[in-house]
């Protein structure tokens, strides 16, 4: 004990810098976790986190028994499910196609263009979608010109298009950036394998099927496993920005639901309970998926 004290005194220079950091992480990262205790109370804003009446799991029960529960879960799982189903293979296909381009300059230019959407905000994406999908936007005009519809469709005003729009814009935004990891995996495949394939007269499709895909199998499976770990994260900003009262039956996900009840309507304890539920299930999913990945490939992504 005295030893430790002596060490701390000797290292006081470092500790003076470290203590504010510890204080920061305790306040901004750990204290909010402790604040989730209000999920089991009827919390009155402004009071301390321990002053409310204890109500046990009442808020959780209320969420489970409300009709919102099924709808919110359906929307969340549908949108992130679609994202895994289409959003995960899309960058892989892009990477394989880019990899086949012979002209290196063309390949580089295409790649450069493909990352741009990744770096713009969802507000800008929303603005683009409002312009393209509005009643006098490009898509309606094209459909009208080709005689496929008679009247303009309000794509963003009707719930049945919402999931498609979210999935498509997610893919548009992330495809280029997500293809990088596949491209670098493709680049690390042993050249000798490719040369051996050439000597054996393997076709280009055969090269992709027998050399490239097996060569990056680990990367593919790893990314898919981790994608499943994040299944409750169906996005947040995009739903808030693109959703509207007319589409809320399809756009409400867990996070927007928490926002609506907690921030806009002020039901702190109820919102906190829903949020806690999501946080717990998410952590369990992520950790178990990590464990599976570790078992399968002896690599961990943390």
């Amino acid at each position: 004990m005295q030893n430790l004290m002596r060490r701390i005194v000797r290292e006081r220079q470092i500790w003076i810098m470290a203590v504010p950091m510890i204080a920061w992480v305790l306040v901004f990262s750990y204290y909010p976790m402790y604040g989730m205790i209000i999920s089991f109370q009827n919390y009155v804003p402004g009071n301390s986190f321990f002053s409310g009446d204890w109500v046990g799991f009442a808020h959780f029960e209320r969420f489970f028994s409300s009709p919102d529960f099924l709808q919110v879960m359906r929307n969340t799982l549908a949108m992130s499910g679609l994202n895994i189903l289409f959003g995960l293979p899309a960058p892989l296909i892009l990477a394989l196609l880019l990899n086949e381009l012979r002209n290196k300059t063309f390949k580089r230019v295409t790649q450069t263009l493909s990352y741009i959407p990744y770096f713009i905000s969802w507000v800008v994406v929303a603005s683009i979608l409002f312009t393209l999908l509005g009643s006098d936007g490009l898509l309606n005009r094209l459909l009208l010109d080709f005689g496929m519809i008679k009247d303009p469709i309000s794509f963003l005003g009707e719930g049945k298009y919402f999931w498609t729009i979210i999935t498509a814009s997610n893919i548009w935004k992330d495809i280029g950036f997500n293809s990088i990891i596949y491209l670098s995996a493709l680049a690390s495949i042993d050249r000798e394998l490719l040369d051996a394939g050439k000597v054996d007269g393997i076709s280009r499709f055969g090269t992709v099927w027998h050399i490239y895909l097996p060569g990056i199998r680990t990367t593919i499976i790893l990314l898919w496993i981790l994608g499943i770990g994040g299944i409750l994260n169906a996005g947040f900003e995009q739903q808030l920005l693109l959703g509207s009262p007319t589409t809320s039956d399809y756009s409400e996900v867990v996070d927007t639901y928490v926002y609506k009840y907690g921030v806009q309507l002020g039901y702190y304890s109820f919102a906190s309970a829903v949020n806690l539920l999501k946080a717990v299930v998410s952590v369990v999913l992520v950790l178990s998926m990590n464990r599976i990945a570790k078992k399968l490939f002896d690599t961990s992504i943390v």
Binding site: L4, R7, I8, E11, I14, W15, A18, M21, I22, V25, L26, V27, F28, S29, Y30, Y31, P32, M33, G35, M36, I38, F236, D255, V258, Y259, G262, V263, Y268, A271, S272, N275, L276, K278, A279, V283, V286, L287, V302
Partner: peptide, 26 residues
Amino acid sequence: SGKRLLRILFFVTMYFNGGFFPAYLL
């Protein structure tokens, strides 16, 4: 002597963060 403590304190928050709502209350 505090480097492990610092590392762990910050590293844990990568997995365990309560989401936006508890942060909002804070």
